[in-house]
Design a protein around this nucleic acid. Structure first.
Lengths: 147, 147
DNA sequence: TGCTTGTTGAAAACGGTTTTCATTGTCGGA
DNA sequence: TCCGACAATGAAAACCGTTTTCAACAAGCA
């Protein structure tokens, strides 16, 4: 586990350096917060968690770090339409989507993507599709009406 | 065409009244702006268009009208993740998605939804899915690299 | 070690959206 | 048709998540 962590930090550090960026204590803290929080948390939540590792960390730095991570493909933004941006650590193996409980806000991962290949999606309109965003909304087991 | 318009206004007016709301000149102007603009325009664009019919219309009223329309199922919000909410007039026949050109911002409708039925989507996690949001990003025919 | 230049933190700015408040106007009832 | 209750409006101000500014700091290369 420790080794996994160290590896991740080093991989990310390398990716940053490759773009002329630097790895700092603050970025390490944000990276670990992202990893430990899991799916789709916003800047404020990431800030709160990262402060555990580095209490002096400012919220502005979190925003800037997330911006850098997104630009370098280390993380990506998730939008639920509530006016705040959430972030996921990018995985090498592919993307995932989310199930959002409209009652309690709980979020679950959806690893399978049921969409046809990109090539087909934009064909009728002549678009070349390079990305998509899918979020599912409904009720989690605890909140679902017991029918 | 004139008749179609009148019908729409009346249907919407009825739906509003049903909820204790009122149909006003301003709301009529917003409704017509939504209909004539088509897919996914933001409050500012709707405001600009609606002002053609009612120049005194304030932007705040547009926001409030859109809020009422969404609450009454007359329109629904669309999110592209750029920090502004767009709106579509709801259709009785079902929903549609969008193709967004990352280069020129052009937006195209996607009428077919390639997703499995809601019932299946949240099953593994035990969620009851009631809605979903899907937006496709890529390049339109004009902007696509001529491969 | 020294230097260059990316990074940080605090405060202020930003921009889309929402709220406040006094005024106006819709629409159901007399 | 007129009345009155109360929803809707407009302008200004407030909000709130995010971004920018700017001076001090520190990562990483020579």
């Amino acid at each position: 586990m420790r080794a996994v962590k160290r590896n991740r930090v080093e991989r990310v550090a390398a990716r940053l350096r490759h773009r002329g960026r630097r790895m700092t204590v603050q970025r390490r803290a944000v990276l670990e917060a992202l990893a430990s929080l899991g799916c789709a948390h916003d800047a404020e939540a990431i800030h709160a968690r990262a402060r555990a590792a580095y209490p002096k960390l400012g919220l502005v730095t979190v925003y800037r770090t997330l911006e850098a991570f997104v630009a370098d493909g280390i993380a990506h933004p998730v939008f639920f339409g509530d006016g705040r941006v959430r972030y996921d650590l990018s995985e090498d193996g592919g993307h995932h989507h989310h199930l959002v409980c409209l009652s309690c806000g709980r979020i679950a991962r959806v690893d399978e993507c049921h969409l046809p290949p990109s090539r087909r999606l934009g064909r009728p309109q002549g678009f070349t599709v390079t990305a998509h965003r899918l979020e599912l909304f409904g009720y989690c087991p605890r909140c679902a009406p017991k029918a």
